Simulated assay, not measured.
Amino acid sequence: MNPQCARCGKIVYPTEKVNCLDKYWHKSCFHCEICRMTLNMKTYKGYEKKPYCNAHYPKQQFTIVADTPENLRLKQQSELQSQAKYKEDFEKNRGRGFSIVTDTPELQRLKRTQEQISNVCAD
């Protein structure tokens, strides 16, 4: 006995049968759920036993983690450790943030130009 098409419910004969996603389909009925583009065994992606094209394949979405007491404790602990590390790094590198710049001829020229501009504006 010939099976029924998963899309249209009509009988699927062997010459037009596509066996995919644990169902039988007519070749023309095996299309994307969204855009209705005809698919084949190489171009389909199955999701919840339904065929989709690559463009309309449903994206997996992540769930939100609940704020359980244990998760809140872990979050607070990691923030405390982070603050301690930043404070330790700050204390260790205190006073090292400055670098000495040598007076190159270009910097000397810029300094003179800025002084001249300042003098003109002050008059």
Rank of each mutant, 00 (worst) to 15 (best):
L80K: 13
L80C: 01
L80H: 02
Q81F: 00
S82C: 14
Q83V: 11
A84C: 07
K85V: 14
K85G: 09
K85N: 09
Y86V: 01
Y86K: 11
K87E: 09
E88C: 04
E88W: 04
E88K: 06
D89N: 10
F90K: 13
F90H: 09
F90V: 05
K92M: 04
K92F: 09
K92Q: 07
K92P: 00
N93Q: 12
N93R: 03
R94V: 14
R94T: 06
G95N: 03
R96V: 08
R96Q: 15
F98H: 13
F98W: 14
S99L: 11
S99G: 12
S99D: 10
I100D: 12
I100P: 05
I100A: 12
V101S: 15
V101Q: 14
T102R: 15
T102N: 11
T102P: 11
T102C: 15
T102E: 15
D103I: 02
D103Y: 03
D103K: 06
D103R: 00
T104R: 02
P105F: 00
P105E: 03
P105V: 00
P105Y: 00
E106C: 04
E106M: 01
E106W: 00
E106N: 02
E106D: 13
Q108Y: 00
Q108I: 02
Q108L: 08
R109E: 02
R109P: 01
R109H: 04
R109W: 09
L110D: 05
L110T: 03
K111G: 05
R112A: 12
R112F: 09
T113N: 08
T113D: 03
Q114W: 11
Q114E: 07
E115F: 09
I117P: 00
I117G: 02
I117F: 07
S118W: 02
S118P: 00
S118L: 15
N119I: 02
N119P: 01
V120W: 09
V120I: 07
V120T: 14
V120K: 13
